[in-house]
């Protein structure tokens, strides 16, 4: 290798002919990208809302006059149980956010990350540094997932803290199982969060694929959310039968099984298989596409 190195007029010696100090694996450090995203208003707003939401719910519960009838469904029982303790309050906060809010937030972090660089025109300068395309995507994806995870943790953490301060540290109750001791309940709650994170990988994958496909950040985020909603709608149509098992949203509520005693992991495991398969396919396509495409933005 040394034989093929070359001395340039400026005294650069590098087997690959790179500038001094340039190493492909050192480009686009994780921390740099993390700061880059942290400086953005949408990141700050999304994370801030994750903190705010449990507090808003908490305040809303203070208006409870106690005589309203929510009907006998699973939602009402969760509402009734929400004020029974910090764990239940957290569970409620997750329950109301899981179906839409978290989907939007994850789609935002993962769908916006590449598309917005493309729309600002800064993507081509990153690639001309040059940041290897696979590395650029890897770092972008890891940072987007880190922010998605952070959002989830912030939501649950704030809810747990605020709920515990307001309603106390009591066992986790649910309509599907016996009371769970607080420590056991906390473990179940963590398992629920873990499963939710896995399910949301589908959104992350889809949004990320759209993000490398389009230059419009809104298109990537909105597209992922729209497809998620479409899948949810199709999942309501029982006539589809076994086909529904293949919908990415089919197992999205399987985390309820983690609250029962004993824990029902059947659907959770199938949901994990479904989500991980989808996410892998989407990410695979995203990498395949991005490492080959002509950057024209």
């Amino acid at each position: 290798m040394a034989g093929s190195s070359v001395e340039t007029p400026l005294g650069v010696t590098d087997p690959a002919g790179a500038a001094r100090g340039y190493r492909p694996s050192a480009t686009m450090p994780f921390a740099a990208e993390f700061r880059r995203q942290a400086s953005r208003r949408r990141t700050q707003l999304a994370l801030g809302f994750m903190v705010l939401l449990p507090l808003i719910i908490l305040i809303a519960f203070q208006f409870d006059s106690g005589d309203d009838d929510n009907g006998r469904n699973e939602f009402s029982s969760l509402v009734e149980l929400a004020t029974s303790g910090g764990l239940n309050f957290t569970l409620f906060s997750i329950f109301v956010s899981a179906s839409f809010l978290l989907v939007v937030v994850v789609a935002l972090f993962c769908g916006d990350t590449v598309a917005s660089e493309a729309s600002w025109g800064s993507l081509r300068y990153l690639l001309a540094i040059p940041v290897p395309r696979a590395r650029l995507l890897t770092v972008k994806l890891v940072v987007a997932l880190a922010y998605s995870g952070l959002a989830l943790i912030l939501l649950a953490g704030t809810a747990l803290l605020a709920g515990t301060l307001r309603y106390g540290w009591s066992p986790l109750r649910s309509t599907v199982a016996a009371e769970l001791e607080p420590t056991e309940g906390l473990l179940r709650l963590l398992a629920v969060l873990g499963y939710l994170a896995v399910v949301l990988l589908v959104v992350a994958g889809l949004a990320f694929l759209l993000s490398v496909t389009t230059d419009a950040a809104l298109g990537a985020v909105g597209g992922a959310v729209l497809l998620w909603i479409l899948s949810s709608i199709l999942d309501q149509i029982t006539a589809l039968g076994a086909l529904r098992d293949f919908l990415p949203t089919h197992f999205s509520t399987a985390w309820l099984g983690l609250l029962s005693t004993p824990v029902q992991t059947d659907d959770v495991v199938r949901g994990c298989i479904s989500a991980i398969s989808y996410a892998t396919v989407f990410w695979g396509l995203a990498f395949w596409r991005f490492t080959r495409k002509d950057i024209t933005s």
Binding site: T8, G17, A18, A19, Y22, R124, Y125, L127, P130, R133
Partner: peptide
């Protein structure tokens, strides 16, 4: 570029500074 065959992502690109198709900055 300096005798190196250039393909997308070639390390030798690091020896080129470029302005192509207008500026691209983070507006915020």
């Amino acid at each position: 570029v300096f005798g190196r065959r250039l393909v997308p992502g070639s390390p030798v690109l690091s020896r080129i500074g470029a302005l192509v198709e207008g500026p691209g900055f983070l507006p915020h």
